[in-house]
Simulated scan of single mutants.
Amino acid sequence: MPRFELVTLDSQEWAKALAAFPDRIVFQTPAWLAFLAESQGGTPVLAALRDGNDTLGYFAGCVVKKFGLKILGSPLRGWSTPYMGFNLLPTVPRRLAVEALSEFAFKTLGCIYLEVTDAHLKLEDLTGLGFSHEMHGTMEVDLTQSEDVLLSRMTKSCRWTIRKGEKNGVVLEEASDAGFADDYAAQLKDVFAKQGLMPHYGAERVRALIKHLHPTGMLLLVRARDAEGHCIATGIYPAFGRVAYYIGGASWRQYQKLYPNELVHWYGLRYWKQRGMEVFNMVGTMDFKRKFGGEETTAPMIYKSKYRILTQLRSAAMPVGRAVLRSAYRLKNIGKRRETDSAE
């Protein structure tokens, strides 16, 4: 029976080991693990899946503490990290890795809960192993197609807004400065405000992402400006191996009439296509992401607790968390109105 063994590899050693696996993605790289360590205050974990003297693959994740209890995420929700999971030799079934994971998480690491999203997992890999799951969908664009074909597969309105953005004088630039984090965070706050919500992270996380990822060449940051030079939209696109991802985009509502968002996204698609990426993962299925002509795919987010009650509490916590965010936003606005009234 294969088992996971905790391994200690420095950044260069892990990068070399990772390069041998066709299923490698940016969220498993040394740079991304360093980003998670800083932004989540956790401890990166690497484990080798071994069967006797043979190494069948690896697992990458991060252990964090909540109320003094250890939790293993690969990833956890809210990390700005849609996938992690396993790197396995092509002949190794993923079920073997899932089967070995519980003992590693609960006994070797001493965690009470684990959560994994691996883009290559299938439901049949989980049968009878005691994991709960939620299916997560996304849209994937085939970047091996020509730009003309990519455009033809978009909706008519998407092509129109790209052309309209160009005609409106929207100028795009590749960013690398720390100021990008402030631009993006401010615009993201405006996006969430439209829905009566508040974002769960701010500029500090984006600064950490830029710090660890941008020097590696695995991160594209796009900034859109209007004719007067105002930053009106931003986009964040990491990539590695064969897949690029859209993990964040925002814009000021007052400038959306200039149609910067689709133009920013089209730039990101072409940028990574030109650099050899084969797939562009939209990380979600909302209407904006559907209009770019991708194919919908799904993967299970799996989770398991050492104690059953924790799984039940987790399921109940999600709607509560959303309600708390909405309440916080409303209370903040009430406070601002009271300050304004007092000033008057």
Rank of each mutant, 00 (worst) to 15 (best):
L213N: 04
L213K: 07
M282R: 10
A48R: 06
L219C: 02
P22H: 06
S157R: 13
A323D: 03
G41M: 01
S146Y: 02
L310D: 00
T81L: 01
R207E: 12
V170F: 06
L219A: 01
H200Q: 08
L150K: 11
Q187S: 13
A105K: 08
K156Y: 14
P199R: 08
E204L: 14
M218L: 05
R223H: 06
R163K: 14
R95F: 03
D341I: 10
L33D: 05
A224S: 10
L114D: 09
L123T: 03
F104Y: 13
F104W: 09
P319W: 01
S305T: 11
L151G: 07
A316L: 10
W160N: 13
L209H: 05
G85F: 13
V320G: 00
L209A: 13
L56P: 02
V171S: 14
G321V: 01
K70N: 08
L69Q: 02
A328K: 15
S80D: 07
G52V: 06
A317R: 03
M286C: 11
A186S: 15
F106M: 05
L325E: 11
C231W: 09
K332T: 04
S327E: 15
G229D: 11
F280D: 05
I71N: 03
E173D: 11
L49G: 03
K304H: 14
K289Y: 02
M301C: 13
Y307K: 12
R290G: 05
I236L: 01
A323N: 02
K211T: 15
D148M: 04
F280H: 09
K336I: 15
T127H: 04
T340H: 01
L197Q: 15
N87A: 12
A19V: 02
K211R: 15
R314N: 11
E115N: 15
L188V: 09
R290K: 06
